[in-house]
Design a protein around this nucleic acid. Structure first.
Length: 611
RNA sequence: GGUUCCGUAGCUCAGCUGGAUAGAGCAACAGCCUUCUAAGCUGUGGGUCAUGGGUUCGAAUCCCGUCGGAAUCACCA
């Protein structure tokens, strides 16, 4: 509670100064030119990195009222501000831009306020805060997770953190697609060719074992097709009469009828898969508060559709299938129940939504699902709305782009998928090799060191994925390993570890880490620059929460880490002889560390004390 | 064909509601460790922001056209 108030006050301090400058500009316009402008219309922005100054006022829009040229107008305003605003210490006009500098005392005051707040950037939720449910992951239980799932999981988890950091209550949820024809394929293949294999007997992870049988089915199916075509059947005929496919479909019917043998097999194989998924999720560092299974929700969906049918929201065709007519919404007609009464993908999502809203008092629902399903969610929103669930039309489809290989899309049938477990293992191996080569971590136990390797490896992977704009497709080249240098997770983690190291060294030297910095220290440009960036953190968090973008956080932390390293190289910190300067720099270090740590937390990335 | 999204350096990506000389990293080359962690820092080279128009004081950003790419429009999930 106390922390939240502190955060708000800090945001306010920055807002106070910004409002004061704007108000002062408006006052200046009135006194100098006799014109009225609103404070909000003043264009105030943080000055570009390469220019001198802290804040920039764009004067072009003011020329209409000043009736002077841009430079003259800027000079007038600057001269006025320096008298009217005590924090403004200097100004400079370049072209149509008025760059103003704030006093060092102002920046130090800001710094001193922030240093107390270890939760800086996060706003904690109360019981009255909105409840946001975030769905992500949503795997099928017929194959292991791959790179595409990694992007989904990391985005979903990071979003849950960002949304929480913006003062919301969050429920992370998962819908497991555990039924359907695709599941029956692996079951059938196991029955036919499995020879009783289990994860225990083969030493394979359960999800991989099941996935192997899914592939096996496809291979045998293709073989069978080729034989049929050789015997003179056309492609269509071969597909239609495929005995394997027929068996799989029969199996699905048996499953729906709760046939004991089929159902038992289904339960056993699903348990294998869940055990495998749990391991992968754990390694990835993601988790869920509530998991739904399609096998539990599809019937609710069917009931909802039948209810809608009674209410006249949907209609039934002659062949007994049920449809929604969305032509008035600018869309097409959509199938909701097949002619044999079985449900489709959409039916299941309707049921899941209903169950979720029965379970939780959800204010906002966010679905983290790939952009290939944009149409599906557009339809879902309309259907939920038509069914009288008022939250339906406001659902958020967090639509992210595909992960592509240099050759194009990943195709499981062509064996070009990048497996999630393999990828994470490779990353950890690389991190271990690299760390050992650099000879860090001396004095760490094997166990402690392994923990750090994992932190770095996962940091590299997560940052690599999260730093790109989620809406865009991204390319991943498995032949080129993910970097550990440059704009990467380990670079940021390294910066954090470096800051911690400075603190440790200072304490070893007997320096008591200061609570605050003296108000009248002279600041270098780089120091002001760092403070500027720090002050902007809450705005970035708010923006990231508004547009649902972990990439904003990622790029922001990279920026501060980069600035910090430059500062580190040009200024002594714990070894600075001037005590006031030294203490100020230590306070600055602590603030930068807090921002990095909290920012990385929002990405779901851990930071090591040493690396 | 309809709809939606995308096109920025050799490669991977930033660039916020329009603002200054379009930025990073990787790769290449040249420097910096007896001083707080060199997974770092400094420097060099590399761009018709796909393209043509429009809006305006100002466009990578907004609008329209064209070209190129992706997704989707299933009784698949």
């Amino acid at each position: 509670m106390r922390i939240q108030k502190l955060s708000l006050r800090i945001t306010n301090l920055k807002m106070v100064i910004e409002n004061r400058i704007k108000a002062s500009v408006a006052k200046a316009i009135k006194e100098l030119y006799g014109a009225e402008i609103t404070e909000e219309s003043v264009q105030l922005q943080l000055t570009r990195k390469d220019m001198k100054g802290d804040y920039t006022i764009v004067v072009f829009p003011l020329l209409k009222v000043s009736k002077k040229n841009p430079v003259q107008t800027g000079e007038d305003l600057g001269a006025y501000l320096i008298n009217d605003c005590e924090e403004v210490s200097a100004f400079e006009v370049i072209k149509g831009f008025l760059n103003i500098q704030l006093s060092h005392a102002y920046w130090l005051e800001l710094l001193n306020e922030l240093v107390q707040d270890v939760e800086y950037g996060k706003t904690s939720a109360t019981d009255d805060s909105p409840l946001v449910m975030i769905e992500y992951s949503s795997p099928n239980t017929n194959k292991p997770l791959h790179l595409g799932h990694i992007r989904n999981n990391l985005l979903g988890y990071s979003l849950s953190r960002i949304v929480a950091a913006n003062g919301n209550n969050v429920v992370k949820t998962n819908i497991v697609n555990d039924r359907g024809i695709h599941i029956c394929k692996s079951m059938l293949a196991w029955q036919k060719w499995g020879e009783g294999q289990t994860p225990e007997s083969t030493g394979k992870k359960g999800d991989h074992l099941v996935g192997d049988f899914y592939v096996k089915f496809d291979q045998e199916y293709k073989k069978e097709q080729a034989e049929l075509i050789e015997k003179g059947a056309t492609k269509e005929e071969a597909e239609a009469q495929s005995p394997l496919m027929k068996e799989a479909r029969e199996m699905l019917l048996k499953w729906e009828a709760h046939d004991e043998e089929v159902y038992g097999l289904w339960e056993m194989m699903n348990q294998w898969v869940y055990a495998g998924f749990d391991e992968t999720y754990k390694m990835m560092g993601v988790d869920f508060d509530k998991i739904y299974y399609e096998s539990d929700t599809f019937k609710t969906g069917r009931d909802m559709v039948l209810e809608g049918l009674e209410k006249g929201v949907f209609y039934r065709r002659d062949d007994n299938s049920v449809w929604a007519d969305l032509q008035n919404d600018g869309l097409d007609e959509k199938l909701l129940l097949r002619s044999d009464g079985t449900s489709v993908y959409m039916t299941q999502d309707i049921g899941t939504a209903k169950l979720r809203y029965d379970d939780f008092s959800i204010d906002k629902m966010v679905y983290v699902v790939g952009n290939e399903q944009n149409y599906h969610f557009k339809v879902l929103a309309i259907l939920l709305d038509k069914l009288g669930l008022e939250w339906g039309k406001d659902l958020v489809h967090f639509s992210y782009g595909m992960v592509e290989l240099p050759e194009g899309k990943m195709k499981s049938r062509e064996g070009t998928v990048v497996d999630a477990d393999d990828l994470m293992k490779d990353m950890i191996d690389t991190a271990r090799d690299m760390s050992k080569e650099l000879g860090k971590l001396e004095g760490y136990s094997e166990e402690e060191a392994e923990k750090v390797f994992k932190t770095i490896a996962l940091g590299a992977l997560k940052y690599f994925i999260l730093k790109v704009d989620p809406r865009k497709n991204m390319t991943f080249d498995p032949k080129e390993s993910i970097d550990f240098n440059g704009n990467t997770g380990p670079f940021i983690q390294y910066t954090y570890a470096r800051i911690q190291s400075i603190g440790r060294k200072a304490q070893e030297k007997g320096i008591v880490l200061p609570e605050s910095a003296s108000k009248d220290v002279e600041l270098t440009d780089k120091e002001v620059q760092l403070m500027k960036i720090i002050s902007n953190f809450p705005s970035v968090v708010a923006e990231a929460g508004k547009v649902y973008s972990p990439a904003l956080i990622a790029n922001f932390i990279y920026d501060i880490a980069k600035e910090f390293n430059q500062f580190y190289h040009e200024s002594p910190i714990a070894v600075e002889e001037d005590e006031a300067k030294r203490d100020m720099r230590l306070v600055l270090c602590k603030n930068v560390g807090t921002v990095i740590k909290n920012g990385m937390w929002m990405l779901g990335i851990d930071v090591p004390e040493r690396m």
